[in-house]
Design a protein around this nucleic acid. Structure first.
Length: 271
DNA sequence: AAAACTCTCAACCGCGCACAG
DNA sequence: ACTGTGCGCGGTTGAGAGTTT
């Protein structure tokens, strides 16, 4: 038994969106809010797949999107985050207000990769291009290609990178990688923490949430709670949403109350 | 001027995860 | 425990714009 299709292929438009379709989608979401993407197309009078609507809204129509060129600071932030997180574009996007995962992914593939190559840095491993053997060894350790990009991860490039705008966060070693593998090697085979190896880099990080704050970004965190707690959290979230304070990156990444996360409960419960 | 080529990025596809029943 | 459903993610594609020949 195969997976049922997400929508009827025959009666849906594909390809570029028209102005009229955009307007319909915007108007519908203005009135009813985001969510329930599967039923949205019909309700909004769109001959589109729900996934297509979601993508169009998230990547293009959302009012808080920051369009235009990436700044130098954003470039460096993306590079740093990629060295920690690998191709986890959604996590990277969560740290860049107004930018989408798709946008960052495209930008990475078209600009930053080239930029890193020109610096003599392998964009996947964030190591100097010459160090083939170590790279191969790393990628042979498991099947994930880029995931090891974040391994051993605070490397020469990062040291050379300006650290003023963003300090790197240490990804806890016990994170379930789920393909991210980011932390797998974060301490390196030496057993030393990144801080021990590179004491000049502060691995503490608190970053404000992208605005507007999106509950969905944190749903995976909520899901770890009991149902009752979830309801409480959602209710609390609704109460505090407009003035939600900064929340530590550990939390945003799903490492809540891990060794690396020292957030106070008061901050956490505002979610 | 136009054909060929390159680049960019919006959109699609398929998979995995989490939840509800 | 199992299955179906919906959502979100990352990889890939392809149309169109831009550049070169």
């Amino acid at each position: 038994m195969g997976r049922s299709p997400c929508c009827e292929k025959e009666h849906t438009n594909k390809g570029a969106w028209t102005k009229e379709e955009d307007d319909r989608l915007i108007n519908y979401i203005k009135l009813h809010g985001e969510g329930c993407w599967r039923s949205l197309p019909k309700a909004a009078g769109l001959l589109r797949c729900g996934k297509s609507c979601r993508l169009r809204w998230i990547n293009y129509l959302r009012p808080d999107l920051k369009r235009g060129n990436f700044s130098e600071e954003e470039d460096e932030l993306i590079i740093n985050l990629h060295s920690l997180l690998g191709n986890k574009w959604s996590l990277i996007a969560a740290r860049l207000p107004g930018r989408t995962d798709n946008e960052i992914k495209n930008y990475w593939n078209t600009h930053i990769k080239r930029k890193l190559y020109s610096r003599g840095i392998d964009p996947q491993t964030h190591r100097p291009l010459g160090s083939v053997s170590s790279t191969n060894k790393a990628s042979n350790n498991n099947n994930s290609n880029c995931s090891n990009s974040s391994s051993s991860n605070v490397n020469r490039f990062q040291l050379e990178t300006k650290q003023s705008a963003v300090s790197l966060m240490q990804v806890p070693a016990n994170i379930d990688n789920g393909g991210a593998d980011s932390a797998e090697d974060s301490n390196g085979s030496s057993g030393l923490s990144s801080e021990e190896v590179f004491p000049q880099i502060s691995l503490e990080l608190s970053i404000g949430l992208p605005f507007p704050f999106q509950q969905s970004r944190f749903s995976s965190v909520d899901l770890n709670q009991s149902q009752q707690q979830q309801q409480q959290q959602r209710a609390t979230y609704q109460l505090f949403k407009p003035t939600a304070p900064d929340v530590c990156l550990c939390y945003g990444l799903g490492f809540r109350k891990s060794q690396a996360c020292s957030c106070s409960d008061s901050v956490i419960t505002t979610l």
